Amino acid sequence: MPEWSTQFFVDLESKVWDALVSGDADAEYELLSTDFVGVYPAGFATRAEHADELSDGPITASYSIVDARLIEVAADAVLLCYRADHQPVGSAEPESMFISSLWVERDGRWWNIFSQDTPASS
């Protein structure tokens, strides 16, 4: 996997976050696989459920991806792990969480097929 860098996947992951900032559900559908599973403090989410969070517009005001690490799972699969510092829309307090995001190459493009968010303790 020498042609893929950590920054390559941070850039892909940033597109997911950019969709949360812009409220662009279509961008979510372009990045998340049809079999996507999200594991969050509130439970599981499918691709449609994840994108539906944007039905009323943006849910994130700003974000940063910190301390990214890449684990090669297979020749066509990587796990991106990082801390996300973000400001939810309508919240006075910023939040941090640790995220593991599985990206898989299918038919020549990368798809996010799994994400798990763990809130950071304060």
Rank of each mutant, 00 (worst) to 15 (best):
T6G: 01
A45H: 09
W103I: 00
S122L: 07
E72H: 07
A25L: 11
E30T: 14
Q7G: 00
V66M: 12
P2A: 15
S64E: 11
P58C: 12
S22P: 10
E49A: 15
L12D: 04
Q87A: 08
H50K: 14
I59G: 01
S100A: 14
L20W: 15
W17V: 06
S64L: 10
L20Y: 15
A19H: 04
A48E: 09
T46W: 01
H50Y: 11
P41R: 06
A77S: 06
A48L: 04
E95L: 15
F8V: 07
D24V: 12
D85A: 03
S101H: 04
P88K: 02
Q116W: 06
G108K: 02
S100V: 10
A75Q: 14
L79P: 00
Q116E: 11
D35T: 12
A68V: 05
Y82K: 01
V89R: 09
G38I: 03
L54G: 00
D18Q: 13
D56E: 13
V89N: 10
W111R: 01
D107L: 08
A27T: 08
S96D: 07
T6V: 04
Y63T: 07
V16D: 10
E105G: 08
Q7N: 04
A92R: 13
S121H: 00
V89E: 09
F98T: 12
A19K: 06
E72D: 08
G43S: 06
W17F: 15
T34D: 11
Y29P: 03
S5N: 03
A45E: 15
A92N: 14
A74E: 08
D76F: 04
